[in-house]
Design a protein around this nucleic acid. Sequence first.
RNA 1: GCGCCCGUAGCUCAACGGAUAGAGCAACCGGCUUCUACCCGGUUGGUUGGGGGUUCGAAUCCCUCCGGGCGCGCCA
Length: 553
Amino acid sequence: MTPGQLEALIRASLTQLGLPTAPDSISAILPEVSVERPRRPEHGDYATSIALVAAGRLGVAPRALAADLARALAADPGIAAAEVAGPGFVNIRLAPAAAGAVARTIVEDGADYGTSTTLAGRHINLEFISANPTGPLHLGHTRWAALGDAIGRVLTAAGATVTREFYINDRGVQLDRFGESLLAVAEGRPVPDDGYHGAYIVDIAAAILAEHPQLLHLPAAERLELAREEGYRMVLTDQQRVLALFRTTFDMWCSERALHESGAVERALDRLRDAGHVYTLEGAQWLRTTDVGDDKDRVLVKADGELTYFAADTAYYLDKRARGHDLLIYLLGADHHGYAGRLRAVAACAGDDPDRTLEVLIGQLVRIEQDGAEVRLSKRAGTVVTLEALIDEVGVDAARYSLIRHPADTPLTLDLDLLRTHTSDNPVFSVQYAHARIAGVLRNAERAGIHWRAADFDPGVLVAEQETRLLGACAQYPRVVATAAELRAPHRVARHLEQLATDFHRFYDACRVLPAGEAATPVHIGRLWLSAATRQVLANGLALCGVNAPDQM
RNA sequence: GCGCCCGUAGCUCAACGGAUAGAGCAACCGGCUUCUACCCGGUUGGUUGGGGGUUCGAAUCCCUCCGGGCGCGCCA
């Protein structure tokens, strides 16, 4: 019996209790029925607090309601025991056969186990990283590369249609400064103070010169354009290469320049003007965002006629909506959180309800440390840690996983030394090792001629404490994925995998899976099913993290 | 000054409003003649920054104070 099936049973039981209350009030509380895994095993496999929640509204005493519910549940053959505890919890213990049946469900569902339709029909646009094409991706982008990708995977698992987008800021002052810096290096001049000073500038300038030896003989204006455009092309290509290496993919790379060239920006401004949200002051055109909660109005067109970055982003919002996305998720670094209010204002000015169409997730910064000391990140000092360097240091799996296993809104420190270790101290290896260990057992079973899949599986044989805990963790997995999607919090998947791995290692330590010489018994078969189910859950969860699930290590 | 985020064990961090707040690291003590010891068991460790409030019940929600990060351009 899965948690979902148990909840359905509780709902059915509640409606059949014959409570002295209006049927309407009973059906009103049914959606709130949920079971949880108690922290303490002696509280049972599952517990529900529905009696506590509902008693007041039904006009009955919590413990009395709980007792009635417990009695009704206990009558079901899948329930071994149901009893009232504390102020009105109902603690539930499943019959071994009902609990163990989850293993069969998991093995049969395979890669689909854990997916759901809770977000079916939603067209979600997920924008993340969106770095300037003026340098390699660095640690500041890395968290979003891993987390944004994982959020996309989790949302997809929950049934949403997800479009992942990378917005390229390929227009404006920053790109010009980048081009000027490249040209300065190419010409042997010092980089301007407001330019880019990283060592990579020298490399790119050299690459441009190698490909375009005629650069220095062109007229000045053409020189700058060639340096800028070639530098842009090289940086973007490199960003795409590194992201692919990092297993982070995008459905769409949207260019700010293209928004201007296609007329999308002008059309967006026209639409806002028509809606009466634009006014002119001191030669500039402003969007009246204060009408919708922003703390100040924002400039769309500067007094010199130049369009602002904000104007393009407004157009981009409308463009995404016009493409049919009903929810736009933006992942921003903490240093850009001030932008959230402006985006909300844009949504409101466009006639949308920002609470429905817009979500801005703010990620705190990542620090890294090595040899017990923080590695300072400084562009000036040339100690910028790039995404590629991090991959070189610890590998894609460890880098991705360590970034994913923390909520986005907490500051995070990566310990490079730890990420390189291959022991259970390193969570990603603990999880991967559990997967590899199971794969090994299943290989051995095959080698020994034990065809567990074809054999009779009696779920009732899985009664050891380590077995029931492992079953419970496997059964919980779909709920974890659904919650992770709902909260945009893939770290919940990772944390659950760690618990699952620990539960497996304990099970493996206590319970012999394969027969040691003798013929395979129903217990061996049952444990093979349980092992196979665990392997499937680990593989599915690691896939959501974008981390490999190795068959051997 | 205004706004957003954060404050949990010595360290790094978990915990849909649920029961006695959990893992890992660090420290110490144990466990392999059999399926991967890259593992497992045990011990030590807390006024969840302080104080109020909401309720059956608060690390979680509200108020306030303290401490830290970040943001408040006709920059992008």
